[in-house]
Design a protein around this nucleic acid. Structure first.
Length: 977
DNA sequence: TAGAAAACGTA
DNA sequence: GTACGTTTTCTAG
């Protein structure tokens, strides 16, 4: 905190009535919207211009030494308590005004000025108190407002200024308005009342009469005491009858001048704004003129400063989905619009407000509680019930949710309101027999029992980061977490392609806060300990912070879903998949370890044979696995021409290079290729897979990542079961080792040509669409169109080229890439592409449109509204730019396909259940689903699976192109595929 | 001993 | 030409 100058005589205190300013500016200034996303910013612009003039002391003397922008806090004030009708008939906020409130607060912070609000009090009371204190110290006060309620404060040292009319309001102007001196203004208002604020006053008495009466009787109390003397009958009767109402009105209109201020007068001393922060804000608002002025004043290059990322245009667009959400698939507690409705804000306004809230309250680790007793835990559970949501995070002994044991968990119910519940932390002594639990911990059994009703209660939303992990941990404790919100997935829906979605990164990005690193509490590398060996106080800070941060992220990110029209994407493609994938991981798949072990031996033998031949041919023994040594042998010692270099300048010994050399008749490269194949199959599959078998289940449980790709595809790891070999005969031996349990078979169901079909759909190419509708061989048909060769009796080489072109199109084709793929000159590849576009002009248009859209918006969207961001799409470097363009073109197709199979997966289990089938979905490999099915249910299951997959786009999107799914059952994955 | 690079498995 | 994850080797610390 900067040092504040104490206020002294002669200082100038400026108080801005923030809320009133917004209303006045909104009505007085022409409407202005931010050009990129039409966010209304008229009042914000006026406000910023005014602040800039104030801090630069332009046309405003003396220069302010202290300044605060004062807001109403939208809560119950003492006035509401004494008179519930007070300000009860305020009209609803205009839709384009509401979002400007939080922005004005942001603007104030950007100017480094104090932003003051205090619950229980209106802005007027706070200003009255500041004015009173300033006056007492001999300072001059200016209140920027035209609210007549503030006129009671005016005197020789306190003036008002109406920013809209640009006029000063002193004692004379107040007299003009009320017909009395400022100190009598309260009495006038008590009599005359105020229809706007619903202050009752005395019927039949307006300002004029009130002033006249007060002139005659002196003050309100005297007047009411002597009301019987008044000649006019009606007026006399009213004054007597409504005397109490007048006194009540006085209580309402009299401003409190003795509020206990949270922010002292000294705290609002003016400091020079930090130019960069201010420019970042102004740029985000797209106020170009003021940005330029500020930049000039500070001699800063505005172009070098990025717009405030939390505030810049995010593109508030409506949902791409026209479908109503499946009623059964949507959680009642998930209604993201609720918060907006409650707060009386539009979704965009709430979103902006929450983004600024994110950085407002610092994380205070001292506020966290370590829960030591079941009683305290029950109180936290009670608290979660009260508010209807709770952030949850588990701490465990490892990273594998199928093996790790719970050590403790944390809960958070509000920012800085978080706790950690240690369960199984262990003591320091390393004795062989005494692995003693530390004292004062709730037992796992008691905790699970206390938590289960809460975590399974459909009325309480559980919030987490990467909840699939915690879901599995709780599942193993007999708890099925529901309903859930996952901050990682919300971030992924909103910002796929922008940074990572890990908690630490999100915290830095949205909360400006760096959480404690896991390594800092548990150590890393050799000295790492499992979490149950971490001291409880350290663990507590770390874990409670995780829950706290998760909750804060949820408050920031969740409203963005509504504001940016991405609720349907989140609700249909992300949220329901958490449990679907968790169950798939939980089931795992069976492998034949004996078969893999035998294969490993075979591969080792083959490698040994090859190694002997290789060293013979090379004339020396070397490591065939070393690209460096191999390069030296091939291109150094053996002087084989035609070598290429890798980007780092080393000899390239990739498969494509070795393949070329082999075709030229060189024997050694062929042997190396064979050796590498065996090496790969042995190390990555035959040897590695058995190490992943879970000792308790005897099966392999992969981990599917939901938020790892830019396009919406899943990824699989530990082990990656999405890259099990299939292309070569040797490789397929590995695949044969994936088997079904006794009495079952594996069903593999895969979409045929789904991305090409989506190309035909999205690029709206009738000839391609027709080909799919007619069930033609699409590559042959392409070849026939391009080269004029009839499909019947087509040479396989012609079809192969057309197939390469079709794939090239999906990948965003370049002549360079196609030439590489087909081993033809670049010119020839270019000619192919040209001819392709002549035959299919719609596809060229599709690619051009996608490029232009991505360039303009920085993202593309799938058929289902999923956004894939490409922040480098406008890079100056042409190869980076071209790469991003190809990726964006591919993303619409790959991403739409990913959306479709996600939809199928979400619907699959209910469809199977409904059909009375027990099939278990085990794996997803991008366009393929693997099931384990009881022998007697195979025939009934296949049509259900096909039906769900082929109709997955309905009803969100009705494709003109049919989707085709091939499904087969067998004892192992190779034969099912 | 950690991280980059090269290589290669899949859709 | 797109999208991934894993393994081994190599290099810098």
């Amino acid at each position: 905190m900067p040092e504040h100058d104490p206020l002294e005589a002669g200082d100038h205190v400026v108080l801005i009535d923030g809320s009133a300013y917004i209303f006045r500016a909104y009505h007085a200034l022409p409407p202005l919207t931010r050009s990129s996303d039409k966010l209304p910013v008229g009042a914000v612009a006026g406000f910023c211009n005014m602040l800039w003039k104030l801090v630069r002391a332009q046309g405003f003397s003396p220069a302010p030494t202290h300044l605060a922008v004062v807001f109403d806090k939208s809560e119950i004030t003492f006035r509401k308590e004494i008179y519930p009708l007070y300000k009860a008939q305020r009209p609803d906020l205009p839709e384009d005004l509401a979002p400007q409130f939080p922005l004005i607060r942001e603007a104030t912070r950007a100017f480094d000025l104090a932003c003051v609000e205090q619950s229980g009090f209106e802005a007027d009371d706070l200003m009255a108190t500041y004015a009173e204190q300033a006056k007492a110290k001999g300072a001059l006060v200016t209140i920027i407002s035209s609210d007549k309620d503030l006129m009671q404060l005016v005197d020789a040292k306190v003036r008002m200024y109406d920013p809209m009319k640009d006029r000063s309001i002193g004692v004379d102007e107040v007299f003009e308005k009320f017909g009395v001196a400022p100190e009598k203004v309260v009495d006038v208002q008590s009599l005359a009342g105020d229809s706007v604020d619903n202050v009752p006053g005395v019927p039949g008495i307006g300002i004029k009469t009130a002033a006249q009466l007060l002139d005659e009787y002196g003050d309100l109390d005297t007047l009411l005491a002597r009301a019987g003397e008044i000649k006019q009958t009606k007026r006399r009767e009213n004054l007597i009858e409504f005397a109490d109402q007048a006194r009540l009105s006085r209580e309402l209109v009299t401003l409190k001048r003795d509020v206990q201020l949270d922010v002292s007068l000294d705290d609002i001393a003016v400091v020079e704004p930090e130019g960069k922060k201010l420019i970042a804000f102004l740029k985000a608002m797209e106020f170009t003129t003021l940005t330029r002025r500020v930049a000039e004043a500070y001699e800063i290059d505005a172009a070098a400063i990025d717009p405030d990322p939390g505030l810049k245009a995010g593109g508030a667009r409506s949902d791409a989905l026209g479908e109503g959400l499946d009623p059964e698939g949507v959680d009642p507690t998930a209604a993201a619009g609720d918060a907006a409705v409650e707060a009386g804000l539009t979704p965009a306004a709430l979103s902006v407000a929450r983004i600024s809230e994110g950085t407002a309250t610092p994380v205070d680790r001292a506020s966290y509680e370590t829960v030591r007793t079941l009683d305290r835990l029950r109180q936290w559970v009670e608290r979660a019930y009260e508010i209807g949501f709770v952030a949850v995070d588990t701490e465990t002994t490892g990273l594998d949710p199928m093996q790790a044991d719970i050590v403790g968990f944390s809960l958070a119910t509000a920012p800085n309101e978080a706790c950690y519940v240690p369960l199984t932390h262990k003591g320091g002594d390393e004795g062989l027999f005494s692995e003693g639990l530390l004292p004062d911990q709730v037992s796992v059994r008691d905790a699970a029992e206390a938590l289960k009703p809460l975590l399974e209660d459909p009325a309480v939303l559980k919030i987490g980061q990467n909840l699939k992990y915690d879901w599995l941990i709780f599942k193993r404790l007999g708890i099925e977490l529901a309903p859930c919100d996952d901050t990682m997935l919300i971030s992924y829906v909103l910002d796929a392609g922008v940074g990572s979605h890990g908690m630490d990164a999100l915290s830095v990005r949205w909360l400006g806060h760096t959480p404690i690193k896991y390594e800092a509490v548990a150590g890393k590398g050799k000295s790492a300990v499992s979490f149950d060996r971490v001291a409880i106080d350290k663990a507590s800070e770390y874990a409670a912070e995780d829950a706290d941060v998760t909750l804060r992220l949820w408050r920031v990110l969740k409203p963005r879903l509504v504001a940016e029209g991405k609720t349907a994407v989140y609700e249909t493609l992300e949220r329901p998949l958490v449990t679907v994938l968790a169950r798939m991981e939980e089931r795992g798949i069976m492998i034949d370890r004996q078969m893999l072990s035998r294969l490993s031996g075979e591969f080792a033998q083959g490698m040994g044979r090859l190694e002997a031949e290789i060293s013979d041919m090379a004339g020396e023994s070397f490591n065939p696995g070393s690209p460096k040594q191999l390069g030296d042998i091939l291109f150094g010692k053996m002087q084989i021409p035609g070598g290429r270099k890798t980007p780092t300048g080393a000899w390239s010994t990739g498969a494509d290079v070795l393949e070329e050399l082999a075709e030229q008749g060189h024997e050694l490269p062929r042997r190396i290729l064979d050796w590498r194949q065996l090496q790969k199959l042995k190390s990555t599959y035959a040897d590695a897979l058995p190490t992943y078998v879970n000792p308790e289940t005897g099966r392999v449980h992969t981990s599917f990542a939901l938020a790892a790709t830019t396009t919406g595809r899943l990824s699989s790891s530990e082990p990656n079961l999405q890259n099990i070999p299939v292309r070569t005969e040797e490789g397929r031996k590995i695949r044969k080792a994936f088997i079904a349990e006794r009495g079952h078979k594996l069903i593999s169901a895969d979409y045929s040509q789904i991305e090409l079909r989506l190309l035909a759909e999205i690029a709206d190419t009738p000839s391609l669409r027709q080909a799919f509708q007619d069930g033609l061989d699409i590559h042959a048909m392409t070849a026939s169109e391009m080269f004029g060769v009839p499909i019947a009796g087509m040479p396989s080489e012609v079809r192969r080229r057309a197939k390469a072109i079709n794939f090239g199109i999906i990948y965003g084709i370049s002549a360079f890439g196609l030439a590489n793929q087909l081993s033809i000159p670049r010119e020839e590849a270019g000619a192919y592409i040209k001819r392709y576009f002549e035959r299919f002009p719609g596809i060229r248009a599709y690619m051009d449109e996608t490029r232009a859209f991505a360039r303009e918006h920085g993202y593309v969207e799938t058929l289902f509204g999923r956004r894939c961001h490409y922040p480098d799409i406008a890079a100056k470097n042409p190869s980076i730019r071209a790469f991003n363009e190809r990726a964006a073109i591919n993303a619409r197709l790959q991403g739409s396909a990913a959306d479709i199979i996600r939809r199928a997966m979400v619907r699959m289990e209910p469809a199977l259940t409904k059909a009375g089938l027990s099939a278990r979905m085990l794996l997803q490999v991008h366009d393929e689903l693997i099931f384990e099915v009881r022998d007697e249910e195979i025939e009934a299951t296949i049509p259900v699976v096909k039906q769900v997959m082929e109709h997955a786009p309905i009803p969100a999107v009705a494709l003109k192109v049919p989707l085709k799914v091939d499904a087969r059952a067998a004892l192992n994955w190779d034969e099912a595929h």
